[in-house]
């Protein structure tokens, strides 16, 4: 098994996190925003796993399982909201839902 150093792992996790963050910020399509959020969550999970491996403990992987569960629940809610959104506005453009602006 090829050992990957913690440093490299965290850099990969960071790149993933910022990819997701930038995706949330620049995509208009609400579906892609949800996907970007999933990427950010998985980046955080990856960082946990790397940290757990570094210390030789299972905690990191347990934490990742938690994140997985949470993400599943979140996606369920998120997709339901997107369906409602689409039914109401007939589009997936998030900027369409600015009725409550000040």
């Amino acid at each position: 098994m090829i050992a990957i150093s913690l440093n490299t792992g965290l850099i990969i996790a960071s790149i993933m996190f910022f990819t997701g963050l930038i995706g949330v910020m620049i995509r208009k399509n609400i579906m892609f925003m949800l996907i970007s959020i999933e990427i950010m969550l998985n980046a955080a999970g990856l960082a946990f796993v790397f940290a757990g491996a570094q210390h030789g403990q299972a905690d990191g992987q347990i934490m990742f399982l938690f994140i997985l569960t949470t993400a599943a629940a979140e996606v369920a809610v998120g997709l339901a909201l997107i369906i409602q959104f689409y039914q109401k506005f007939k589009t997936l453009n998030s900027d369409a839902a600015n009725n409550m602006r000040g």
């Binding site: 910020m25 925003m33 839902a97 600015n98 000040g102």
Partner: peptide, 9 residues
């Protein structure tokens, strides 16, 4: 008030 645009991004 101007910061409350209703745009999530």
């Amino acid at each position: 008030k101007y910061t409350q645009t209703g745009k999530v991004r």
